[in-house]
Amino acid sequence: MDVIEVSGLRKTYRGHDAVRGIDLNVPRGEVFALLGPNGAGKTTTVEILEGHRRRSGGEARVLGEDPGTAGRVWRARIGVVLQDADDAADLTVTEMVRHVAGFYPDPRPVAEVIDLVGLTEKSKARIRTLSGGQRRRVDVALGIVGRPELLFLDEPTTGFDPAARRQFWDLIRALAAEGTTILLTTHYLEEAEALADRLAVLSGGLIVAEGTPATLGGRGAAGARVSWRHGGVQHTEQVTDPTELIRKLVAEDADLTTLTVTRPTLEDTYLTLIGDHR
C-alpha cells in the first residue's frame, strides 16, 4: 500500500474546475515533487491530501485513510509545513515549537528540531523579529516536530536566499534518509531536480507529465546536441549517444576546446510541457 493513493481527484470551486482528475501514487520513503505554474492546482491538491479541503470527486487515500474524514491519530502521523502563515508572532521560537510538540504522542526534542532547521541562535527571539526565510524555517520545524511519516511541503523555499535554500535541501535529504515520505510543491525547477525521486507536472488541473527528473517528458530519450568548431566552421550534430561522435572527433584531431554537449534542461522540458497544455 502506497502512502499516497489518488485516483480521479477533482475539485470544483463555484463552477471553476481547479483540479480535473488527478491520479497519483507515492510509495513510502519517496520524495515526490508537484511542479506547475501558479493556478495549476498544486496547492489545492496538497490541501485536499492534508485534510484542509474537501474534494469534489475521485478517490484519495493518505496513510491508508480518507483525508476528508481522518481523525486525530491520522493527523499525528502527518506533518504540514504551511506556505504563508504569520501566526504566533509574539512567541519565541522555542515557546512555539515546544507548544506544538505538546500535541504529539512522541515528539522530537525541541532543541534538536530547532537545531535541525538552523535556528539555534534565534531560539529565544520572538517570531515577529525573524526574517522571511527564518520564519519559513520555523514552519518547517513545526511541521517535523511530531516525527511525521508523511511531510507536506507547499512551496517551502519561497523567499529563501540561495545559501538558505541549499541548507534547507540538506535538511529535506536528511529527513528523506530517515524514511520520511515527502510531498513537495515548488516552482523552482532546480529544487525539484535536486530533491525529488519522482515528479509530476501539473497544468490546468491535470497531470501533463510524470517521471524522474532525468526522464520527465521524454528528457532521457531526447539525446544530446554536440557542437564544435573545426577549421573556422561551426558544426552541430544531434545524436542519441554522444560517445561515438566524440571518439571520432578525437581521432580526427579536431579542436576540442570549443566542444559542448547539451541535453534539454529540466526547465526546457517543463516549459515545453506547460506550453503545450496552456
Binding site: 492534508e50 485534510g51 486525530r72 493527523r75 504540514v80 504563508d84 502563515a85 501566526d87 508572532a89 506544538v100
Partner: peptide, 12 residues
C-alpha cells in the same frame, strides 16, 4: 494569520 490552519494540521 494561519493559527487555525496550523492547528488543524496537528492532532489538537
Amino acid at each position: 494569520d494561519g493559527t487555525l490552519k496550523r492547528l488543524h494540521g496537528t492532532p489538537i
